[in-house]
Nucleic acid binder design. Structure first.
Length: 465
RNA sequence: GGCCCGGUAGCAGAGUGGUUAUGCAGAGGACUGCAAAUCCUUUUACGUCGGUUCGAUUCCGGCCCGGGCCUCCA
């Protein structure tokens, strides 16, 4: 082994369909945009995947560069929201405000850092209108019957991200072409609102924006006309990101919107794609009632972000077991001085190579094994610090290990800590007088309450099993 | 129809042209009053048929199987 060398960052770019070295536009400020949620319902585990995966990207970039600006939008104007409002009788603001709050606290529970900016679409209507006017002036958009549409044929190299030409997509279209479109591929920038939908005054009458324009307008506002990385779920490649590119590049006259496009794979349930429309989804909020957020996070990281991830309860319990092992390694030497440790090179390398989180996790386990095996205290503490610093990059192991193992608050029927400590004391007394029958009875009693004891040389610790 | 991904041991899941992934589960052992945790040893692999090669799970091609996208979608 030579001296430890850290690889440079490289990521798979959807646009060029290959792994490319990361070359910042501006080393002093890395600019990252990730498509955020449409706030009308609880986030499901599939919505959480890009949040967690690109949270690691954010952490990694922050480790590499002095400043990163991370923008994740909140889509709070959308026909699905309108429909939810109509059906529930609740106001749109009520729904979007509450859903946003739940989303933020759920993602927080998953250990995702808060983005630097979380712009809401409804607070950027003016920027969108401005951009649409710009597109019209340049001949890329037209108005018809209250709708403003982007004219796809006006952009000669449309379709590069998704790798399909215009004829192909028209030939394969599953949906009838709206009669007001000049070209079947054209898409909506602005549409009219009646009394039943939210709207804003615009040069084209009272209306609301189309789906794609918010990301173009808000990324421009916070990150500029061209920025480093644009990321999101794989299903956003077409049409969402393709159309964002069309809007931004045509409005600004740039040759690219983002330098690098990253997309995470789907989460499946029982091998099938999970989606709100299919109804087969697990919400993060629901999962948090049964599992620590860190476990849910670990499970999301156990597969490579571009590969499909099959979600299962088995996967969660595997993740929990894996975290138990990591926390156990930290636990055996809880209070030692910090060593100003740096993340392990192997962990950094794994993440630097297109966010290889499964490999990074395995390196964490190797470090944990090294901690367990270390005979020298000094060495053990050093590796332990390295483990903790490495895990930070993955947003893991940030709790006190005792808190991790005593996750009692999760289950309402669990005994209190005081009750457990009391029983342990009784058992200790029994053990002192070698009444092992009684000692074992007490342990069995605790076990039946979900508490596992661990005797060490001079003390007994416990954990929730 | 067009385009794009995969198929690795019991499960999950990396990776590599020849050398241990990793976690869980299984087997044996150490430690323990007994356990738990930990440590040691250990059993199951690379869809299929060809090609390139001294050598392929790893590269190339055919085939089989599975999945996704083609204007709701993370």
């Amino acid at each position: 082994m030579g001296p430890s060398t850290v690889k440079s960052l490289s990521f798979y770019d959807t646009f060029t369909r290959r792994k490319v070295p990361f070359v910042p536009l501006d080393k002093s400020n890395i600019r990252l945009y990730v498509c955020g949620p449409t706030v009308y319902d609880y986030a499901h585990i599939g919505n959480a995947r890009p949040v967690v995966v690109f949270d690691i990207l954010y952490r990694l970039l922050k480790h590499w560069f002095p400043k990163v600006t991370y923008v994740r939008n909140i889509t709070d104007v959308d026909d699905k929201i309108n429909e939810r409002s109509r059906k529930s009788g609740r106001s749109i603001k009520d729904i979007t405000d509450e859903t946003t709050k739940i989303f933020q606290s759920d993602m927080d529970a998953l250990g995702a850092l808060t983005p630097d900016v979380e712009p809401r679409a409804t607070e950027h209507i003016n920027q969108m209108i401005e951009m649409i006017e710009n597109l019209m002036e340049k001949g890329h958009a037209y108005e018809t019957k209250g709708h403003v549409l982007f004219n796809v044929p006006s952009m000669t190299d449309y379709g590069q991200l998704s790798g399909r030409n215009r004829d192909e997509q028209i030939a394969g279209a599953r949906v009838d072409v709206a009669p007001y479109k000049n070209d079947p591929a054209d898409f909506i920038l602005w549409k009219p609102s009646g009394s039943d939908a939210p709207g804003w005054h615009s040069p084209w009458g009272f209306g609301r924006p189309g789906w794609h324009i918010e990301c173009s307008a808000m990324s421009k506002m916070y990150l500029g006309e061209t920025f480093d990385i644009h990321a999101g779920g794989i299903d956003l490649i077409f049409p969402h990101h393709e159309n964002e590119i069309a809007q931004s590049r045509c409005a600004f006259g740039t040759c690219r919107m983002a330098n690098l496009w990253m997309h995470n794979g789907y989460v499946t349930v029982e091998g099938e794609k999970m989606s709100k429309s299919a109804g087969n989804f697990y919400t993060v909020n629901g999962l948090l009632k049964d599992w620590p957020g860190e476990t849910i996070r670990y499970a999301l990281l156990s597969g490579h972000y571009r590969a499909p991830l099959n979600y299962s309860i088995k996967g969660l319990s595997d993740a929990q077991a894996a975290l138990d092992r990591l926390y156990q390694a930290i636990r055996i030497s809880e209070d030692n001085g910090h060593h100003n440790a740096l993340p392990g090179v192997s962990v950094l390398d794994a993440l630097a190579d297109d966010l290889n989180t499964p490999l990074a996790l395995s390196e964490l386990h190797k470090l944990a094994g090294a901690v367990n095996k270390a005979s020298d205290n000094e060495v053990r503490n050093k590796i332990r610090s390295e483990l903790i610093e490495s895990a930070k990059l993955l947003g893991l192991l940030d709790k006190k290990s005792e808190d991790w193992f005593r996750r009692g608050a999760l289950k309402s029927n669990s005994p209190t800590s005081a009750e457990i400590e009391q029983l342990i004391l009784s058992r200790d007394r029994a053990r002192e007088i070698k009444d092992f029958k009684k000692a074992d009875e007490i342990r069995d009693e605790l076990e039946s309450m979900g508490v596992t004891l661990e005797d060490s040389k001079n003390t007994t610790t416990w954990k929730m099993s």
